[in-house]
Design a binder for these strands. Structure first.
Lengths: 258, 258
DNA sequence: TTGACTTATATGCGAGACACATATATACAT
DNA sequence: ATGTATATATGTGTCTCGCATATAAGTCAA
């Protein structure tokens, strides 16, 4: 603790005055809440969004299903904490990961005051399925969105057998916020690609968009819009082993030209 | 502390098992960061966005200018903390207030680990000017945005005399994030109205939009778009004491019809 | 080999949103 | 009365989008 304080004082902008003051500073004027991160890992397949959940082995709410989460460590940024949690519980690194919203209702955790910084992560379904198969007490849930458009609110999650997976704490709300954010961002940010492998056809991209938005898209408009956006790059190769005319494969073009 | 724990246990979903477990639960497995809220209060006038800043009276960074902020109290939600801070330091209640982003770089505060939940608030300039005049050590700053569109990044703030107001900690980044969010949300969310008094002309609304976006808007398109949006309601009255044809006054229509 | 079938890809057309331009209306000042 | 500044209305070409149609390129079965 003393070590950190001097290191911190060296970083301070105020020079010697700051250092003198900090020696008598008491940061614990109030009880501090615990701070965690929770990660909504989302993927798309078969017309539904899916998420990865961890079964709570300890009370409170033992047996309920929770988003992968954990405490923020003292010297770790929030982004780093979320990435660490995702690597530890799902074995995933280098995926799209972005801060979502911070949840801090006093009663959201029955133990003590816990504020959690929600994150959402996106991966293609192949990596998602691998991640879900790796760990014990991990389940894949199919997300059912009981509201339209960007209304918002909690979502429901069903297991592989179709039975509902009861979520712990306010995690249904966090997951719902992630879906809402996804829907809102899909039209203007390159996040649809994050849910697909490196190369994909336009129809696959369309299905992903339809899955996220929860409504069908016009095929031709979608096609033109995507090609005009400059975010797609033709690979020159085509699908193989399909029982119809094979489609051109595209990849996501890093927006160097925009 | 013991009192809170039992109250919390009663809220828990797991029944007796939870209660037994909680008696032995140690929430302090890690050092907990301090948790604060910081509020970027924003208004628009004269072609610029303005914000309210508080002069730091104590080290670190004494003399620098900070967003109104404070610690989150144990039994208080994040929204409530932000509203309390805004009422305490600016005397404002009932204004638009929304969570922005949470900033948690380990070195962002030289004292100790402080994670802050950023909020942004919007008021019309009349109330803003009153709020700024009320308190000592409070200044109105004019925001200069050194980037275009929704690029993002820190912003600069100048005082009434045009001299730069140096911001404390990462508050230039928080304020920049608020501007970026405003620009992104203006087109699809009814937030322009929050920067105007109860009734206003279409040109005043256009000026507000131009100020937020940092670029001129076509007058006729803007007019039609706003009237077509269903968010405006004609009051039937007009401007008075203007040296030109008076414009119709409108008010923001609560979206009950949408 | 041929034709049915499925999906991909290209093109045309009309509706609506928008930027830009022009025309008219209504206030106040001189 | 005239000028001036702004409000408000109307027209026009462009662009995007949804919808429809036409053609292409594969598989598969008879």
């Amino acid at each position: 603790m003393a070590r950190r304080r001097t290191a911190a004082a060296r970083r301070g902008g105020g020079g010697g005055e700051d250092r003198r003051f900090l020696a008598g500073y008491d940061p614990a004027r109030y009880d501090r809440p615990s701070l965690t991160v929770d990660v909504a890992l989302v993927s798309a397949s078969d017309g539904s969004l899916h998420t990865l959940l961890v079964r709570r082995a300890e009370p409170p709410q033992r047996g309920r299903w929770a988003l992968p989460g954990g405490f923020v460590r003292p010297e770790e940024s929030l982004d780093a904490a979320a990435a660490r949690v995702l690597a530890a519980k799902a074995g995933l690194r280098g995926v799209f990961l972005e801060q979502l919203y911070t949840f801090g209702e006093p009663a959201r955790d029955p133990r003590t005051r816990v504020v959690t910084v929600g994150y959402y992560a996106l991966v293609d379904f192949e990596r998602f399925a691998e991640a879900a198969g790796a760990g014990a007490d991990v389940a894949v849930g199919r997300i059912a969105v009981p509201w339209e458009g960007e209304t918002g609110g909690p979502v429901e999650v069903a297991g592989a057998d179709g039975a509902p997976l009861p979520l712990a704490f306010d995690h249904a709300e966090i997951l719902g916020t992630a879906v809402k954010r996804l829907r809102g961002k899909l039209d203007y940010a390159p996040i649809g690609f994050q849910l697909l492998p490196a190369t994909f056809t336009l129809l696959e991209l369309q299905r992903v968009h339809e899955t996220v938005l929860g409504r069908p898209q016009n095929k031709d408009s979608f096609r033109r819009r995507m090609l005009a956006s400059g975010q797609l790059e033709a690979t020159g190769t085509s699908q193989k082993d399909v029982d119809h005319r094979p489609a051109e494969l595209y990849r996501f073009a890093r927006r160097s030209a925009v």
